[in-house]
């Protein structure tokens, strides 16, 4: 047992963790932020993607104690109040969500990509989300959604 401090979705929080707990466990079980999914538990599917200090990580591959004093953004931390993040809105508008299991991870992956590269090509988008598996969509509408989000963000800036 150990107590750590971290900032999650903009809020300072404190939590007791077990030594063998992963970041994914405290996100889902500790903070009840169940938008982050566990697909494989071994860093292969990207369903657990979150932003850790602004960098995209698989929360199943990070130990909870490594998140001490860090800043974590999960899917629940995107957007403001009732307004969705432009990426979330673009996913809805293009029909990029089917079962939705990959979606939180995909959106965060796209977020990380657009923070680094606000005007990606189709191929760069494909590469950017290639660590996130999707069984339903064939990725086409997801790529379209990221393109649309990038366009809308550029227009509002």
């Amino acid at each position: 047992m150990k107590t750590i401090n971290l900032k999650i979705n903009g809020r300072k929080r404190q939590i007791e963790i077990e030594e063998n707990e992963r970041l994914l466990d405290i996100i889902r079980e500790g903070f009840h932020l169940t938008g982050t999914k566990e697909g494989c538990g071994e860093g292969e599917c990207g369903a657990c993607s979150v932003l850790l200090n602004g960098k995209l990580v698989n929360a199943c591959m990070i130990m909870a104690f490594q998140a001490e004093d860090s800043e974590v953004i999960t899917i629940e931390g995107l957007g403001e109040n009732e307004k969705l993040d432009p990426i979330q809105q673009a996913f809805i508008d293009t029909g990029a969500v089917q079962c939705g299991f990959c979606t939180p991870g995909m959106v965060l992956s796209a977020k990380a990509l657009l923070m680094k590269n606000p005007t990606p090509t189709k191929q760069e988008i494909r590469r950017g989300i290639s660590g996130n598996l999707c069984r339903c969509t064939g990725y086409e509408k997801i790529v379209e959604a990221v393109e649309l989000a990038a366009k809308r963000i550029a227009e509002t800036d």
């Binding site: 494989c40 599917c45 590469r127 290639s130 598996l133 990725y139």
Partner: peptide, 13 residues
């Protein structure tokens, strides 16, 4: 697991 059971990624699609 997905290391051995491969499914298409966005780059394969």
């Amino acid at each position: 697991n997905f290391t051995k059971y491969l499914i298409p990624t966005a780059l394969d699609a």
